[in-house]
């Protein structure tokens, strides 16, 4: 475990100092000098061993004439992700936000700190900002977020971290709640209820009918109405009636159970109703 593994004892020998690193790595040093990590007033690299705080002692590296990864720790693509994160967690692992890092999906899938964070930039911020940094791996989500019906992710009004906790959580998909309903209710408090007349799938899981990032169907629905409703509701008269193209506005026998918003033309209280008389979620 990255946070629990005792950090290998660092022998305070073989350290060469940042000025020596700078001689060859001028560009990297310049960006480091602009970063939060460079501030000597915080418990960061600069208040410890500067470059060698994270990269390790550099004497052997210098002796061998340098070279990528030659007797020096680098944050390259091919470096073990756990080892890279362990370097960062030496300082950052004790912050409460990292409590669940060990158990989180990212850590368990080889996502290391430098996958998302740039260690040398001026602000220490993520490489690209959200959502692009997340889209880099989550291709399906990138496609979904651009669909006709979507949460305002690409507009910047909902960020990935509005709903997900990328540093790890106990919940599925690392959402910032115990379950999908609690998460959705954070913004959609009007759907919380309690209702006099409930719609049980609504009460159990919003994701039965809705998808979260984007959909080709209106209202982020997983399927189109009336088909989504009819997959569950077969009853006498209209719930079991087939609605084909004859029942459209332009068809031979238009039906207000089909055209426009279909079932929602009547059943406006689809998430639950608070009338005392049971009106099949129409009131």
């Amino acid at each position: 475990s990255a946070t629990t593994d005792p950090e290998p004892a660092v022998e305070k020998t073989g350290f060469i100092g940042a000025e020596t690193c700078k001689d060859c790595h001028e560009t990297q040093y310049a960006s480091y000098a602009k970063s939060v990590h460079f501030k000597p007033s915080i418990k960061g690299p600069q208040s410890q061993d500067a470059c060698e705080t994270c990269h390790g002692a550099g004497a052997m590296h210098v002796e061998k004439g340098g070279g990528r990864g030659v007797d020096i720790f680098t944050f390259d693509k091919n470096t073990d992700p756990l080892a890279k994160s362990a370097r960062c967690l030496t300082c950052h692992g004790k912050t409460p936000d990292m409590d669940f890092w060990d158990l989180g999906v990212h850590n368990r899938n080889d996502v290391s700190c430098d996958s998302c964070h740039d260690l040398h930039t001026a602000s220490g911020s993520q490489k690209p900002k959200e959502p692009e940094v997340c889209f880099g791996c989550h291709r399906d989500i990138k496609v979904a977020a651009n669909k006709r019906s979507h949460h305002p992710i690409i507009e910047g009004k909902v960020s990935c971290s509005s709903c997900h906790f990328p540093h790890g959580s106990l919940s599925k998909a690392m959402v910032k709640a115990d379950d999908p309903q609690q998460l959705c209710y954070t913004c959609h408090a009007d759907k919380r209820g309690p209702y006099v007349y409930e719609h049980p799938p609504v009460a159990e899981n919003c994701l039965t009918c809705h998808t979260t990032h984007g959909s080709i169907h209106e209202k982020l629905l997983t399927e189109k109405v009336p088909n989504l409703c009819q997959d569950c509701h077969d009853w006498q008269r209209h719930p079991g009636t087939p609605y084909d193209s004859k029942t459209a506005f332009t068809g031979q026998s238009p039906s207000n159970r089909y055209f426009g918003r279909s079932c929602l033309n009547c059943h406006g209280a689809i998430h639950g109703s608070n009338t005392f008389e049971n009106n099949a979620l129409t009131r």
Partner: peptide
């Protein structure tokens, strides 16, 4: 969409 074509 068939449900909106020829909206009335």
């Amino acid at each position: 969409d068939n449900q909106y074509d020829g909206y009335n």
